[in-house]
Design a protein around this nucleic acid. Structure first.
Length: 793
RNA sequence: GGGCGAAUGGCGGAAUUGGUAGACGCGUUGGACUCAAAAUCCAAUGGUAGCGAUACUGUGAGGGUUCGAUUCCCUCUUCGCCCACCA
């Protein structure tokens, strides 16, 4: 007798898919397309984890579901390979990031192939491949040309451990998102992308996205639009004016003092001889304070600067303070304090004994000019790291930046011996002395003549998020040597229909929207939102409910699950069955066994001669068919054997349920419906049509087993359709309630559902109901749709 | 402190528009097969009482709306995630 041997079957089909490339995507005009992808992984040395498998399998289930419906499906794959882990590994071991990345990609690819994903492997992309980052640099230059990539000196988050600056969203609770070291503020000249130029559109378009509400809210909060006004306060005995931003310009009569941030550029001017020492001390302390300290101690601190300003509404002289509860990077870095209306100002006023005036409100734009500002800052993109996409810029002798001409791209990352950053704030790229020098053609502004000038390359690299801000478009024409993306391919495939991930709620998903809008403005993209639908899947935790981690030793390796003999089909199906896709779930090894048993039962139905009593006529073991006549009185002697055990009904019910569940991404209940179907087929027997239907519906989850079944059954895999006529029963069960409580069930002809009176009569004749209805019946409520009669007594 | 979400058997979870709570899986118990075990198959399985039909009870707690509430409203508790001095 044959046994279900998943590893054998899976090897067979993976080989077939490798050679026949059935998932290769081509543009077919007039055929509807479907483009799906997961957020491409960072290929770590540890290989795939169960979270990847969940993420990729969701994409794969949808890919195969639409493929089986004969849409033209594109499902590519790629690797997000720049980043600190590979560089830190290089510093430690001397193995180059280039080489480690190649090893890791090879491993990831091998593992992904073991899972049987329907990937077009000819479209693989890798962000650290010069063929790819050439075009990342091209993107940078387009932004640079339009003034949306610019340099600015400012205080930045600096990770002393990783020796690099960090973007705001890479600082988590005052710590570096990569190494967990406390970050500091450091004043540096850095490159930025002007994402704030698109703040309004990025915010306004959110409501139209088919994205989870959670993500949409987070993006809205991140952008954080505030509508208010800017008001000038004249400083006494000085020509200086302090510009403040407020959302409540109507409260200006209550403004009894001003507060500026410790980083405020004109703080020096505001200090007097008397206050200089205390102010400078305070500033030094504030800058030294880590973000954690600022968060932990919310007690207001500050000192008087020694200067006063005139409140333009009251004409009163009010003191100017410096305090770290005012943030340098938001608004103008200075506020008018209205302690009567603002809790923080009140707290400060109480502590420093400043007047709290309950003044009248005035017209909003009486003393200032209307102004809208955003919480979102421009995107800091320089990283003082080696393993990133080099910024295509060089500096002349005066230190002015010049773009590397497009025909000189890519700026290749040079090989170095030592990957350690020096402690001057430069990446290891600064050690590649030959690479640093570059000759660039410049035009003399006076003579108009051009000459080659030797310049020094930028040694900062781009934030990895830049590389992932356009890769979805590269998927459309991944090997195009003449452009970042081909216009025809873009028009056909994009924007992506389903994007699936479990991370990057704000950063990546905001940056890619920003680039999309920019490139749409430059006529490189025919759409302004890159992602139609976003599915955000939950994490998989260890069996103990805690996060999996090497140090806790509770990591489940998906490859172990396969190699233990369960196979990829069980692993995939289990991860879909584990719970709602968007919720976190805990791994349960025993449930894996349950899913294996289910697939084993599918196999047995199809291949075990004991069970494979198939016939083209179908229904060999009907318990009691729907085609049987019901009894005269509508009662059923054997309600437990009611015609649910009917082949056509079961089949069409299952097709409907699985199809609708997949449209709703209810993968767990779709698998449950298949289990139910198999259980029913065990009872009533399976016709060939049943087995074909089962295999087709199973294929998105367990493609190897389903392919094996379809091969034996000599069937294609086209997604089946259900017919409502088989779902209409001639006998139905009516629930009889007394005061909303279930008391009895009646089985009647379906046509009787139209006859409320008849059903009420039948119900009142029922022995179980009779004992409740001796007294008067107040009323009866019949709900046809719910097949329910409620008798109120 | 603010925002969002969640709470259902021994466990993971289902219930799609306010209409039979607990689908499906795990676990447990009993049975079949076997010299035996594994595997497989069949059956039972929210709790309490009862041999049983059945009755009562039951979706975090309390209240409300309704013929009827896991579902809607109010108050509270706990947990999770995100943001956190944003003027």
């Amino acid at each position: 007798m044959n046994r279900y041997e998943p590893l054998k079957i899976e090897q067979k089909w993976q080989k077939i898919w490798e050679t026949e490339k059935p998932f290769k995507a081509n543009e077919v005009p007039n055929q509807p397309k479907m483009f799906l992808a997961e957020m491409f992984p960072y290929p770590s040395g540890a290989g795939l984890h169960v979270g990847h498998v969940r993420n990729f399998t969701i994409v794969d289930v949808l890919t195969r579901f639409y493929e089986q419906q004969r849409l033209n499906v594109l499902r590519p794959f790629g690797y997000d390979t720049f980043g600190l882990p590979a560089e830190n590994y290089a510093i430690k071991t001397g193995i180059s990031p280039q080489s480690a990345t190649k090893t890791n990609i090879d491993n990831f690819r091998k593992q992904a192939k073991k899972l049987g994903f329907a990937i077009d492997w000819d479209r693989e992309i890798n962000t650290s491949d010069p063929e790819y980052y050439k075009w990342t640099q091209w993107c940078f230059l387009q932004l640079y040309k339009k003034g949306l990539a610019y340099q600015k000196e400012s205080y930045q988050w600096w990770c002393p451990e990783d020796q690099t600056v960090l973007a705001n969203e890479q600082v988590e609770n005052g710590k570096c998102w990569r190494c967990g070291h406390e970050v500091e503020k450091k004043k540096m000249k850095q490159w930025f992308f002007k994402i704030t130029a698109y703040a309004d559109e990025l915010l306004d378009e959110i409501d139209n996205l088919e994205w989870p509400e959670k993500i949409k809210t987070m993006q809205k909060n991140w952008i954080g639009r505030s509508v208010g006004a800017e008001i000038d306060f004249k400083v006494t005995e000085s020509s200086l004016k302090i510009k403040v931003f407020t959302t409540r310009p109507d409260t200006i009569f209550g403004a009894t003092f001003l507060v500026v941030a410790p980083e405020y550029p004109y703080l020096d001017v505001l200090t007097t001889d008397d206050t200089r020492e205390t102010v400078l001390n305070y500033k030094a302390e504030a800058l030294k304070k880590s973000e954690i300290e600022r968060q932990e101690n919310k007690e207001k601190t500050g000192v008087f600067t020694g200067s006063y300003a005139i409140n333009p509404a009251t004409k009163e002289k009010i003191p100017i303070y410096v305090a770290d509860y005012v943030l340098a990077g938001y608004g103008t870095g200075a506020i008018m304090a209205v302690p009567a209306y603002d809790e923080r100002d009140r707290e400060f006023a109480k502590k420093f004994d400043l007047p709290i005036v309950e003044a009248k409100l005035c017209d909003r734009d009486l003393f200032g000019t209307p102004k809208t500002i955003y919480r979102m800052r421009d995107w800091l993109i320089s990283r003082q790291r080696y393993w990133g996409c080099p910024i295509p810029i060089a500096y002349d002798k005066e230190g002015n930046p010049h773009p590397i001409p497009e025909d000189q791209l890519p700026v290749i990352i040079p090989e170095v011996e030592d990957y350690q950053p020096d402690h001057s704030g430069h990446s290891a790229l600064a050690k590649a002395k030959d690479w640093l020098k570059v000759k660039i053609e410049v035009k003399d502004s006076k003579t108009g003549k051009t000459h080659l000038e030797e310049m020094t390359r930028e040694t900062d690299t781009l934030d990895g998020y830049a590389c992932s801000s356009w890769y979805l478009w590269r998927y459309a024409s991944p090997h195009d040597e003449t452009a970042a993306w081909d216009q025809k391919a873009i028009k056909y495939w994009e924007p992506i229909d389903y994007y699936v991930g479990a991370d990057h709620a704000v950063a990546h998903l905001l940056y890619i929207r920003f680039w999309c809008k920019f490139f749409a403005d430059e006529d490189y993209l025919p759409f302004r939102e890159p992602i139609k639908r976003l599915l955000y899947n939950g994490y998989i935790n260890a069996p103990d409910g805690k996060k999996m981690s090497k140090s806790k030793g509770n990591v489940i390796d998906p490859l172990d699950v396969i190699n233990d003999g369960y196979g990829a089909d069980t692993l995939r199906t289990y991860e879909m069955f584990i719970g709602p896709y968007d919720m976190d779930a805990a791994w349960d090894p025993r449930s894996v066994g349950g899913v294996y048993r289910f697939l084993n039962r599918c196999w047995t139905l199809c291949f075990d001669s004991e069970f494979a009593k198939t016939s083209s006529e179908g229904h060999p073991q009907l318990l009691r068919g729907r085609n049987e006549e019901p009894r005269e009185d509508g009662r059923d002697e054997h309600p437990e054997e009611d015609g649910f055990a009917n082949s056509l009904f079961s089949r069409h019910k299952t097709i409907k349920k699985v199809t609708e569940d997949l449209h709703r991404y209810n993968f767990n209940t779709a698998v449950a419906a298949l289990m139910e179907y198999v259980n029913e087929l065990y009872k009533i027997g399976a016709s060939e049509e049943d087995l074909i239907t089962l295999a087709k519906l199973l294929k998105p989850f367990a493609p190897h087993l389903a392919s094996e079944m379809l091969e034996k059954l000599n069937s294609d895999d086209e997604w089946p359709k259900w017919d409502e006529k088989y779902l209409i029963a001639d006998i139905v069960e009516i629930v009889i309630q007394i005061n909303g409580k279930l008391r009895a069930k009646l089985t009647v002809n379906a046509s009787d559902l139209e006859d409320e009176e008849k059903i009420t009569k039948l119900a009142l004749k029922d022995e179980k109901i009779k004992k409740y209805t001796e007294n008067d019946i107040k009323k009866t409520i019949f709900i046809k749709k719910a097949k329910l009669l409620n008798i109120v007594i």
